[in-house]
Amino acid sequence: MIRPPAASQYCGQQETTDVTHQPVISAKGLDLTFQTGDGPVHALRDVSLDIERGDFVSFIGPSGCGKTTFLRVMADLEQPTAGQITVNGTSPEAARKARAYGYVFQAAGLYPWRTIGGNIRLPLEIMGYSRADQDARVARVLELVELGGFEKKYPWQLSGGMQQRASIARALAFDADILLMDEPFGALDEIVRDHLNEQLLKLWDRTNKTICFVTHSIPEAVYLSTKIVVMSPRPGRITDVIDSPLPRERPLEIRDSPEFIQIAHRVRDGLRAGHAYDD
């Protein structure tokens, strides 16, 4: 029923399914230096990480630690100055052109002149899906993010949380295996955030996507992730990678369990250790 949008994506999938246990995203010794007026800024220094299929990976760290930059390198929105990175076994550029990932920005960034349905349709129009296929996909992802019935509403008629859900639906619409999310809930209040976290976990469980998730929040990172990557700034680097022992099934109450608190502690320690360099 769902056909791949381009032949190139098919190639990408074939490659990753043939080679068993090949990581979905693999970075080795990534460096990225921005040349600015005040001299070079080391956004990433010697970053190496493997992300497996179906992982939920959170990147946490203070501002300037390079977590967003790392995500943008995966998305081919930034070019590393040194090191290697593969996405689905190919270069990020090839992966982007094969539409291998959906990207969710901090701001929902819905077009005000398009309805919610029209916004979700946007990538599908660009990728040349048939009208009937577009309709089916829009309806399906709207159900997935629990926005059924809002297709004809305009963005300004929705709350911030609903807008962000719509932007997630937009990223899901073309069935990319990878979801890159850059602080998608950063601008939302705690209650809405809790609710969306829960929904996101369900969505991840149902769709079995690989999710890379940038966040500022320790509880959010621990609650969502199978793998937590702690980063620290100047230069941006990975200081700790924690494989979460929490089960896939996670009710909100899990946040009161000793395991949860223990992981949160380790994340906090990692963040603090990273900061020691600053003082």
Binding site: D76, R96, Y101, Y103, F105, G109, I126
Partner: peptide, 14 residues
């Protein structure tokens, strides 16, 4: 259009 808007279109390879 904000930079993020143009980035978004780039992720679609528009």
């Amino acid at each position: 259009p904000a930079h993020a808007q143009l980035d978004l279109l780039q992720t679609y390879n528009a």
